[in-house]
Design a protein around this nucleic acid. Structure first.
Lengths: 108, 108
DNA sequence: CGTAGTGCTACGGTAAATGTAGCAACGGAA
DNA sequence: TTCCGTTGCTACATTTACCGTAGCACTACG
């Protein structure tokens, strides 16, 4: 817990400019961050259900991303348990939802 | 884990599903990937200019991301030198351009 | 020749992610 | 009560990714 506060205060990884877009790109450019938002786009998921959805990613990093996304105000933990998107997080999810169609046309 | 696969044959990090959106989220969820696309949104940049724009990120990982983004067809190296977006890459950049406005309202 | 610019890479050290295991707390059944 | 299963969350050792510095080969000037 203490270590995250240290890093977060120092700077958002690799962007000293302070411009919000950089902080956002940095936050979303971490492992599983985009994927978590994507998997939560529907109904809320428990931590273990989210882990299954995220291809059994290690709970360590999943928990770290969830904490960061919660501090950013994109994700929240419901009273009855289970992670879901906040209105802000849902809005963010909408902004890069066109990626889905783009990816379908891309196909590698 | 029965066998230890190398990174190349072992899917795009963390997505075994094969769904294009997962591969795309995975590719864009690596360090500096989103930032590179963002910095190239305007005119093409030389490798060193791009590095300056990306807060002096180490050339090792920058080169790795550039190679991946080139293989994905989003970035290309012009004849006279300098990296720029392909039409596909420019299209991708447009899809998450609304993030800019979102980030401005977000502000942490 | 030397100088300065490309794109790109080697290498040692550090930070982050993985995989496995397990914790305390809560909610039912038995 | 006790047992069981689930929740969110964490410890720890291993593996992987990234950082920072330096420097390569190549080209184009002067």
């Amino acid at each position: 817990m203490a270590k995250r506060a240290t890093r977060a205060e120092r700077r958002v990884r690799g962007s000293r400019t302070g411009r919000p877009i950089m902080a956002l790109l940095d936050l979303l450019g971490r492992r599983w961050a985009l994927r978590i938002l994507w998997e939560l786009r529907g109904e809320p998921l428990t931590s273990r259900a989210l882990r299954s959805a995220c291809d059994e990613a290690s709970p360590t990093v999943l928990q770290a991303r969830l904490t960061e996304l919660r501090e950013a105000g994109f994700v929240e933990l419901g009273d009855g348990g289970g992670y879901g998107l906040t209105p802000l997080g849902r809005e963010l999810c909408e902004t890069f939802m066109p990626l889905h169609r783009f990816a379908e046309r891309w196909r590698r």
